[in-house]
Design a protein around this nucleic acid. Structure first.
Length: 445
DNA sequence: TGAAATGTTGGGGCG
DNA sequence: ACGCCCCAACATTTC
């Protein structure tokens, strides 16, 4: 048994693993190598086009069989199929397995054998199938080869940032690796699952699982999570549904290979998106002047993660208030999220933009003030990530521009200097977005 | 997994 | 006592 990891960066279309995800990968591999060492096994690292790397490893090790877990990005599917064919041709046993999903994307179909386009019937169908079985135990008695083939040094891959080292906030927030994943799962079951239905919407609380990067990297399987939630002494249905969305997203990517690049609804190709590098930068850097949006974008930059409720608000703001293309937001999230996942990221951006499967209608525009007041009622979340607003009264924390001069003065805040004025007027921006959609529909018709 | 605009209802103040 | 008006609260429609 020879555990191997091949880093293959030959991904088309700008979808090479992003910076935050590379940081995670470094630490995840480091943890994996340590876990394997405890079992007496090496972890051989190779870099380059996977087909050549695997062929070389087979040669170097004398392996007679190669096993791996399936990936669902179109280029990975194509590549893995090529590897399988080449191995078979060379007389090597090759098999792929499902370690990433509850069900294979082709297993959940409508009565007519078509993929679902709407989440709720998809979820009903998935839910009606037998649940995933218990995960298998860690195999025992795996012997390392007498002499492991040479591999790269993890540090030489330079997956971590150097100058500047922006990963401090990531290190403080996360423990990549299987042990970290199990710890996160256990504390979620204990702490947040009982109140998940409502608690998950509160970015000011520890109400979500934060398992997404662990799931993405395969440090815990959705099957393990599913079984643990079902076994818990709490109503886990709302959380299981979120695992269902993850499945739905992967199913969409499987059936629509260009999900990450092209809108599923063709009329959205005609949306008159704006091109405004300055406003895009303001959004990315968390200086839009809308506190809940800025808090979210700064949480993302500092920790590599953003609370799901705030992701929806921030994404809605980019696409609708700023009328910038959803692909620009998708690309930024891809680079900065530790949980960056092609299927989830693409499907959810399309959902927000209103151009995806079962998407939120485009006219459903989040009001950043109301969302802030509803889900961060005493401004704790905003104060954590936008500290310059911390002294402001609760009454104005989500709309500092509306605060009386006296309240701003008391908080020591001068708008335009300490915190930006709103870069757009929400009410006017909302009207502009609705008009843009109207235009796209008319042109399409 | 919205929000704003518009419509309806019903309690209470008041002449 | 009665009708009128105001408006908050809730419901429905529309974007």
């Amino acid at each position: 048994m020879l555990p191997v990891f091949v880093l293959d960066d030959a991904t088309p279309g700008g979808w090479r693993r992003g910076a935050a995800s590379r940081w995670w990968l470094h630490h995840s591999l480091s943890a994996l190598a340590a876990d394997l060492a405890r079992l007496g096994l090496p972890l051989v690292l190779r870099r380059g086009p996977a087909e050549a790397a695997i062929a070389a490893l087979v040669q170097d090790s004398g392996a007679t069989a190669v096993m791996w877990n399936r990936r669902y990005e179109p280029w990975n599917r194509q590549r893995d199929e090529g590897i399988k064919v080449a191995l078979h041709a060379a007389g090597i046993e090759a098999s792929s397995h499902n370690g990433a999903l509850l069900r294979e994307p082709w297993e959940v179909t409508t009565g007519g054998g078509r993929p679902y386009q709407v989440f709720t019937p998809f979820w009903r169908a998935l839910r009606s199938l037998p649940g995933p079985g218990q995960p298998l135990p860690v195999p025992s008695g795996m012997a390392a080869p007498d002499r492991a083939p040479a591999g790269d040094r993890l540090d030489d891959w330079a997956l971590r940032p150097t100058r500047p080292d922006w990963a401090g906030g990531l290190s403080r927030t996360w423990t990549p690796g299987e042990a970290g994943a199990r710890e996160r799962l256990a504390s979620f079951l204990d702490r947040a699952l009982p109140a998940y239905r409502t608690g998950r919407d509160r970015p000011d609380r520890d109400g979500t699982s934060m398992l997404s990067p662990h799931l993405h990297m395969g440090e815990v399987s959705p099957r393990t999570v599913w079984n643990a939630v079902e076994a818990a002494d709490a109503d886990g249905e709302a959380f299981l549904r979120e695992l269902g969305w993850r499945e739905f997203c992967h199913q969409l990517l499987f059936h629509h290979g260009d999900l990450a690049d092209a809108p599923l609804r063709p009329e959205f190709a005609r949306m008159p998106w704006r091109d405004d590098p300055q406003q895009l930068a303001a959004w990315q850097q968390g200086r839009t002047g809308y506190p809940i949006v800025d808090a979210g974008m700064r949480q993302l930059w500092q920790t590599g993660w953003m609370h799901n409720r705030v992701r929806m608000v921030a994404a809605s703001f980019l696409v609708k208030d700023l009328l910038l293309p959803w692909q620009a937001g998708e690309a930024w999230f891809w680079d900065t999220l530790v949980d960056a996942d092609l299927a989830n990221n693409a499907a959810n951006w399309q959902w927000v933009a209103g151009c995806g499967a079962d998407a939120a209608p485009f006219f459903r525009v989040f009001n950043p003030v109301l969302q802030g007041e509803k889900f961060d009622p005493d401004g704790r979340y905003v104060r954590q990530f936008v500290p310059e607003l911390a002294p402001l009264d609760d009454r104005w924390i989500h709309q500092p521009w509306a605060a009386p001069a006296e309240a701003l003065h008391r908080a020591g805040i001068r708008l335009g200097r300490d915190y930006p004025w709103p870069i757009v007027d929400h009410a006017a921006a909302r009207q502009r977005a609705l008009a843009a959609l109207d235009h796209a529909k008319r042109v399409a018709a």
